[in-house]
Design a protein around this nucleic acid. Structure first.
Lengths: 211, 211
DNA sequence: AGCCAACCGGACGGGGGCGTCCGTTAGCGT
DNA sequence: ACGCTAACGGACGCCCCCGTCCGGTTGGCT
C-alpha cells in the first residue's frame, strides 16, 4: 500500500522513511507547510540528503503525510451522503470538516491551495465538493438549507476556517467547533433573512505560492 | 501631524518618505506584511539605507502606513455607536469592518496579531472591541442579537475573514461582503437556533511571528 | 564470514533577506 | 555663489534555506 515494485527498501531505510513521515506530520500540523525541509530532517534524526532521497519534493512528502487526513475527509463526506436527513448530513460534513482542518494547519493549506503543480489532493477535493453540492441540493429541496446557498459559500467558509490558525491547537478545535455552529446557523433556511450580496468566483483561486 | 520637532526634514527626504509610504501601502495591501523591506525600497525608487533611516523597523513603517485605515476603523465604530438602532449599528460595523479588512491584507495581519512587540494598534483595537461590546449588549437587550453571543465570536469572525486573503482583491471584497451578510445571519437572534459549543479564549492570541 | 550494493549524513555552493557602514550628492541658509 | 551638513544609495558581512555530491557505513544475501 506504500510503494511500487522498483525497490522493496532496506529495513533501515524504511524505518527512516517512517520517522520522516511522523516528523513531517507533526511539523506540518503545528507550523504549516512552510517548515524548512531541514527542520523536518532534524526532527526525524536524519540527514537532509536522506529526506530528499525519500521525498524529492515537499509536495510528495505532504501527499504521503496527509494520506490519513485525506482518507478521513473522503469517509466524512460519504457519511454525510449516507445520512437519511440531508440537512443533518450537510451539518455533519461542515462540523467534521471544520474540526479536521482545525487539527492540522498544514492539511488546511494543502487542501485549500490547488497546488502550484498538479496535486493528488485536487481530485479528492473535487470529489468532496461534488458530493457536498449534491447534499446541498437535497437539503435545499427539503427546505432546510437557504435557497440562495451556492457551493462557493462553502469554499468561503473553508477559507475562513483557515483564518483561525493563529491560536493554540486546543483552543483552535474549540473555536472551529463554535465556528461550525455559527456557519450552520448562517446557512439554515429562515423566513427573516435578507438577500445575500452576489457571489464572487473563488474556484480559480490564486494561492500565491504555498510550497 | 507627521513628525516631532527634532528635525523638520529636508524637502527631498520628505518626498522620499512619502514615496516609501505609498509603496509600503501598496505592497502591504497586496502581499501582506511579509514583503521584504528591500522590495518596498525598490518599489519606492530608494536605497535600502534610506528606508531604514526613515523607518528603523517594519513595525514603525506599518504603523504610519496604516494610519488611514486605523482612522477609518475608529470612525466606523463611532458611526455604529451613533446609530439609533443598535442592531443596525452592529450590522454596519461588521459590514464595514469586513470590507476594510478585505481591502488590505497587511492591515488585517497588523490589526489582528497583537504584535510581537508593543504596537500602537493594540490600543485602537481595544477601543474598537470595547465599543462593539457595548453595541452588542444594546443589540441583545433590543432582542435582535442572539443572547449567547460573546465578543470572542466577533474576533473569531475577524480571524475567519482573514482567511479569505487568497483571492484577487476585487473578488475578495465581494466575497467579504457576502461573508459579512452570512455572519450577520449567524448572529441574528432566532427562535430556532440550538445552543452553541463553548467559546475558546482567543484574546492572548499567540500570533506566531508576523514581523 | 564476507562481499556488494543500498543507504547514510556531513559538507558544499548558490541565492536571498537582513541591518549597517561610508564615500558621494545635493538641499538650504547665508 | 558658497559651503555646511543632512540625506542618499551601493556595497558589505551575516545568517538561513535550498538541493546535491561524495566518502564512509551497514543491512542482507550467499
Amino acid at each position: 500500500m506504500t510503494d511500487r515494485l522498483p525497490h522493496p527498501l532496506r529495513s533501515d531505510a524504511l524505518d527512516n522513511r517512517e520517522r520522516i513521515l511522523d516528523a513531517a506530520r507533526a511539523l506540518f500540523a503545528t507550523e504549516g507547510l512552510n517548515v524548512p525541509m531541514r527542520e523536518i530532517a532534524r526532527h526525524a534524526g536524519v540527514g537532509p540528503a536522506t529526506l530528499y532521497r525519500r521525498f524529492p519534493t515537499k509536495q510528495m512528502l505532504a501527499t504521503e503525510a496527509f494520506a490519513d487526513e485525506m482518507r478521513a475527509c473522503h469517509v466524512l463526506v460519504e457519511e454525510g451522503l449516507a445520512e437519511p436527513d440531508p440537512w443533518r448530513g450537510f451539518c455533519l460534513v461542515i462540523e467534521k470538516t471544520c474540526e479536521l482542518h482545525a487539527r492540522s494547519r498544514g492539511f488546511t493549506e494543502a487542501f485549500m491551495s490547488t497546488f502550484p503543480e498538479a496535486m493528488d489532493f485536487a481530485a479528492e477535493r473535487a470529489y468532496a465538493l461534488r458530493s457536498i453540492a449534491e447534499l446541498a441540493n437535497r437539503a435545499k429541496d427539503a427546505g432546510h438549507l437557504r435557497p440562495d446557498f451556492v457551493l462557493d459559500d462553502l469554499i468561503l467558509m473553508l477559507m475562513a476556517n483557515r483564518g483561525i490558525h493563529t491560536i493554540s491547537k486546543t483552543a483552535r478545535v474549540a473555536a472551529s467547533r463554535r465556528f461550525a455552529a455559527l456557519v450552520i446557523q448562517a446557512f439554515r433556511a429562515s423566513p427573516q433573512h435578507s438577500p445575500l450580496p452576489p457571489v464572487a468566483r473563488l474556484s480559480p483561486a490564486a494561492p500565491g505560492k504555498v510550497m
